[in-house]
Design a protein around this nucleic acid. Structure first.
Length: 495
RNA sequence: GCAGUGGUAGUUCAGUAGGUUAGAGCGCCAGUUUGUGGAGCUGGAUGUCGGUGGUUCGAGCCCACCCCACUGUACCA
């Protein structure tokens, strides 16, 4: 009892829930610029921005309804005061389906929507995996044409390049669910047996990581991983497995060649032919949009784990080899993915509403850019006006207002420490320069401007600290009346 | 979820066969005769040694359970 009371008296330990990140100004500046580059591209291709709320009624989000046993499995859920379950959205596609179904009659069709925002998943976080993260999506709802898929694919590449990914560093890998369904029919697997179809899809999805031997195990009896964990397999026989593996090897260096190879394997099948026709149209559209095979290729080994895709599927591979801080090479998962989901809106309305879309994971994209050595944006802080003389603080505020009126971000130091500490503060705030007015300057009607960025550059050759300080480099005494003009000149000189 | 590894200052780590007041680098804070950040000088602060219980005269070190982190694996609509 007593102990419990003592525990209660302790203050809470400041800590952040795992999987949720604090984002400081340097990272924030970069993610905002990436998001804006992507959204600008989406807009240029005719996609209208739409923002929806963070929560949806759980039954609108899909199959993951909270139940009594695990009300929060996968999603964050809570019960509203009218007892309805609500959940934080786990992607931007499900809210789109809800919105479209709700407003179908008043929407222009096809409806082309872009969206950027955070999504939440109640899962175990890992490196590069968070419980809150941003996605940038674009979707075309109400067009069944393969050209709609092609356009999304081409635009996805354009968006990535706008965000800073090099043209040679990514490849959109495109396939079609119907290819696999056709193949499974031919091989004698019951396609309507959803669970075995899913096991097979997930097995193929792991090709890049586990290789053909691992996937062979997963398609057969099952696989035991090095840690001793056992994964049940699809229990196919060796000849079925061979045919599936042969199918996954039909990728060629050009889209046309892959189509030829595929038609040999799957051509006789009705679903397979449908898929081939769609892919051929996608190829033609990509070609007319100027998208090379090196940036968008057909790869039948791409299946994607998600159940809701009905046709075209694609994901974006980041190609550049990257190393972590220990020099080990890092494998990035896809930095974006998408596909056609013709049945998602059908949950709300009886009619089938074909839709296709693409989603970019912002933090993963940032990690890729960072590993590739892209120079991050260094955010710039305000001009700091030192407060050397409390009796004259009014003067400092006046200077700040003059600078702001001149379009320059400025701030008066409001702490209580000495000059050295104030310089340190300005340094930490990434201030481009500081304004100094002590009694020396005031008596002369001048101010001293110190260029922190130039100083930083000069400091690289510093050998003797006291001499360095005596020299007072990178600073300049100017007339008080020229404050705004001189600050502007110094800022311009540093661009 | 399953398996392996680990948990000592803000951080990276050291801690010798269980023995007195638990250490180092970096970082942080303050001062350095009106004046100057990023590599000067001087001084300073900081740890429920992940938690709880146990063994012991004595536990950072040994034992049990729990928590958390990392790695692999599964799931990821």
């Amino acid at each position: 009892m007593q102990e419990e009371k003592d525990k209660k008296a302790l203050p809470p330990i400041a800590r952040r829930p795992r999987g949720f990140n604090d984002i400081r100004v340097d990272v924030l500046a970069n993610s905002q610029s990436i998001i804006s580059a992507i959204m600008t591209t989406y807009k240029a291709w005719g996609f209208e921005p739409l923002e929806t709320g963070a929560m949806e009624y759980s039954d609108c989000l899909g199959k993951f309804l909270p139940d009594d046993d695990r009300p929060n499995a996968g999603v964050f859920s809570l019960q509203d005061d009218d007892d309805q379950w609500m959940s934080l959205r786990y992607d931007l596609t499900a809210p789109l389906a809800r919105f479209v179904a709700e407003h179908w009659d008043s929407l222009p069709k096809p409806f082309r929507r872009s969206a950027a925002g955070p999504v939440w998943r109640n899962e175990k976080p890992g490196p590069g995996r968070y419980r809150e993260f941003w996605q940038c999506d674009a979707d075309t709802v109400g067009s069944a044409r393969p050209e709609a898929d092609a356009e999304i694919i081409a635009m996805g590449g354009a968006a990535l390049e706008a965000a800073g990914i090099g043209n040679a560093d990514y490849c959109m890998k495109v396939s079609n669910r119907k290819l696999l369904d056709g193949l499974l029919q031919e091989v004698g697997v019951n396609v309507d047996d959803i669970s075995s179809r899913l096991v097979i899809m997930r097995a193929i999805d792991k090709l890049d990581r586990l290789g053909e031997t691992g996937v062979t195990d997963l398609l057969g009896a099952g696989r035991k991983d090095p840690s001793g964990d056992f994964t049940h397999g699809a229990n196919l026989n060796p000849s079925q497995i061979d045919k599936i593996l042969a199918f996954t090897r039909t990728r060629r260096d050009s889209r046309a060649a892959t189509l030829d190879a595929l038609s040999v394997v799957i051509g006789g099948n009705i679903l397979g032919n449908e898929a081939l026709e769609e892919l051929a149209k996608i190829d033609a559209t990509l070609t007319s949009l100027g998208v090379k095979s090196s940036n968008a290729e057909f790869d039948p080994a791409i299946v994607r784990g998600l159940e809701y895709y009905t046709g075209t599927v694609f994901e974006t591979d980041y190609l550049r080899e990257t190393k972590d801080e220990n020099g080990r090479s890092v494998r990035f998962g896809s930095i974006g993915s998408g596909g056609r989901y013709d049945d998602l809106v059908m949950r709300f309305r009886r009619e089938r509403v074909p839709a296709t879309g693409y989603s970019i994971g912002v933090s993963r994209l940032m990690a890729a850019l960072e590993c590739a050595g892209n120079k991050p944006i260094a955010p710039e802080g305000p001009v700091i006006i030192l407060c050397l003389d409390n009796d004259y603080i009014a003067n400092y505020f006046k200077m700040a207002q003059e600078l702001r009126a001149g379009g320059i971000a400025a701030e008066v130091y409001l702490g209580a420490s000495g000059m050295k500490a104030q310089m340190k503060y300005a340094d930490r705030r990434a201030a481009p320069l500081v304004v100094i007015e002590g009694s020396n300057e005031r008596e002369k009607g001048t101010i001293t401007l110190k260029d922190l960025k130039l100083g930083a550059r000069l400091a690289q050759s510093i050998e003797d600290n006291s001499a360095w300080r005596a020299e007072r480099p990178a600073q300049k005494e100017v007339a008080r009346t020229d404050l705004v003009a001189e600050v502007n000149a110094m800022l311009a000189a540093n661009k």
